[in-house]
Amino acid sequence: RRRVRAILPYTKVPDTDEISFLKGDMFIVHNELEDGWMWVTNLRTDEQGLIVEDLVEEVG
């Protein structure tokens, strides 16, 4: 499975499927959606939700 790491922190918009995260958080990518969004699991918090790919980098 594809893994990505947050390069910046992010605070979710209330009442959306987004998740908040810290710089350095690792995610497993489940689905890549339109307009650069990804459905992921945050490995630190075990939370699932949407993040935008501009805020993460690939992990080898």
Rank of each mutant, 00 (worst) to 15 (best):
R1H: 15
R1Y: 15
R1Q: 15
R1G: 13
R1S: 15
R2E: 05
R2T: 07
R2G: 06
R2H: 07
R2Q: 06
R2K: 12
R3Y: 15
R3D: 04
R3I: 15
R3N: 08
R3T: 14
R3V: 15
V4C: 07
V4K: 05
V4W: 06
V4T: 04
V4E: 00
R5I: 13
R5Q: 10
R5P: 01
R5M: 11
R5F: 07
R5V: 13
R5H: 06
R5E: 05
R5T: 07
A6R: 00
A6S: 08
A6Q: 01
A6F: 02
A6E: 00
A6V: 01
A6C: 04
I7G: 03
I7R: 11
I7T: 09
I7Q: 06
I7E: 03
I7A: 05
L8I: 10
L8P: 00
L8M: 14
L8C: 11
L8E: 11
P9G: 14
P9H: 12
P9C: 09
P9M: 08
P9V: 06
P9Y: 07
P9K: 08
P9N: 15
Y10F: 05
Y10S: 03
Y10D: 00
Y10M: 04
Y10V: 02
T11C: 08
T11I: 13
T11N: 12
T11F: 09
T11E: 12
T11K: 10
T11R: 09
K12M: 06
K12Y: 03
K12C: 08
K12E: 04
K12R: 12
K12H: 07
K12G: 11
V13T: 15
V13H: 13
V13A: 13
V13Q: 15
V13F: 10
P14S: 09
P14L: 08
P14N: 10
P14K: 11
P14M: 09
D15V: 05
D15I: 05
D15N: 14
D15R: 08
D15M: 12
D15L: 11
D15S: 09
D15E: 12
D15W: 10
T16S: 12
T16K: 04
D17I: 08
D17S: 13
D17N: 13
D17Y: 12
D17M: 14
D17A: 13
D17P: 10
E18G: 04
E18Y: 04
E18Q: 14
E18T: 07
E18R: 05
E18N: 05
E18D: 03
E18W: 04
E18F: 06
E18P: 02
I19D: 00
I19E: 00
I19M: 06
I19S: 01
I19T: 02
I19K: 01
I19N: 01
S20G: 05
S20D: 08
S20P: 02
S20K: 02
S20W: 02
S20V: 02
F21R: 00
F21D: 00
F21L: 02
F21Y: 08
F21C: 07
L22V: 11
L22H: 11
L22R: 11
L22C: 07
L22Q: 13
L22N: 11
L22M: 12
L22S: 09
L22T: 08
K23I: 11
K23M: 11
K23N: 07
K23H: 07
K23S: 10
K23R: 13
G24N: 08
G24M: 04
G24I: 05
G24W: 07
G24D: 10
G24V: 02
D25T: 02
D25W: 03
D25K: 00
D25M: 02
D25Y: 02
M26V: 15
M26C: 10
M26F: 11
M26Y: 13
F27W: 01
F27E: 00
F27A: 01
F27R: 00
F27S: 00
F27L: 05
I28P: 00
I28M: 11
V29D: 01
V29Q: 01
V29T: 03
V29A: 02
V29I: 09
H30R: 06
H30E: 11
H30W: 15
H30I: 14
H30Y: 09
H30F: 08
H30K: 05
H30G: 05
H30A: 05
H30M: 13
N31L: 14
N31E: 14
N31H: 15
N31Y: 15
N31C: 10
E32W: 06
E32D: 12
E32H: 08
E32P: 06
E32N: 11
L33T: 09
L33Q: 10
L33C: 09
L33F: 13
L33E: 07
L33P: 10
L33A: 09
E34Q: 13
E34Y: 11
E34R: 12
E34V: 12
E34F: 11
E34W: 10
E34A: 13
E34K: 13
D35P: 07
D35M: 10
D35R: 10
D35Q: 11
D35A: 12
D35I: 06
D35G: 14
D35E: 11
G36K: 08
G36W: 03
G36S: 06
G36V: 03
G36D: 04
G36A: 05
G36N: 08
W37F: 10
W37D: 03
W37L: 10
W37Y: 13
W37S: 08
W37G: 06
M38W: 05
M38S: 04
M38Y: 09
M38N: 03
M38P: 00
M38K: 04
M38T: 03
M38V: 06
M38L: 15
W39S: 04
W39Q: 05
W39D: 03
W39I: 06
V40C: 06
V40N: 00
V40K: 00
V40A: 12
V40P: 00
V40S: 03
V40F: 00
V40H: 00
T41F: 06
T41M: 07
T41V: 09
T41Q: 09
T41D: 02
T41G: 03
T41H: 11
N42Q: 09
N42F: 02
N42V: 02
N42H: 09
N42D: 04
N42R: 04
N42A: 11
N42T: 02
N42G: 02
L43S: 06
L43D: 04
L43W: 04
L43Q: 08
L43Y: 06
L43H: 04
L43I: 12
L43P: 03
L43C: 09
R44W: 04
R44K: 05
R44L: 04
R44T: 06
R44D: 05
T45N: 13
T45S: 09
T45V: 03
T45P: 02
T45E: 02
T45H: 01
T45W: 01
D46M: 15
D46E: 13
D46I: 11
D46W: 13
D46R: 14
E47I: 06
E47S: 06
Q48R: 11
Q48E: 13
Q48G: 05
Q48P: 05
Q48N: 10
Q48I: 13
Q48C: 10
Q48V: 14
Q48L: 09
G49L: 01
G49H: 01
G49R: 00
G49K: 00
G49D: 00
G49T: 00
L50C: 09
L50F: 09
L50A: 10
L50Q: 08
L50M: 13
L50H: 05
L50E: 05
L50V: 09
I51M: 04
I51Y: 01
I51C: 05
I51Q: 01
I51S: 01
I51R: 00
V52N: 15
V52P: 15
V52T: 14
E53N: 13
E53T: 14
E53W: 13
E53Q: 13
E53G: 13
E53H: 13
E53M: 14
E53L: 11
D54F: 15
D54A: 14
D54G: 13
D54R: 14
D54M: 11
D54H: 13
L55E: 03
L55N: 11
L55H: 15
L55M: 14
L55W: 12
L55V: 07
V56Y: 03
V56L: 05
V56E: 00
V56K: 01
V56A: 05
V56D: 00
V56G: 01
V56T: 12
E57A: 07
E57R: 08
E57C: 07
E57M: 09
E57L: 07
E57S: 07
E58C: 07
E58I: 09
E58R: 09
E58Y: 10
E58A: 11
E58D: 14
V59K: 04
V59L: 12
V59W: 12
V59I: 13
V59M: 13
V59F: 11
G60I: 14
G60L: 13
G60E: 14
G60R: 12
G60C: 13
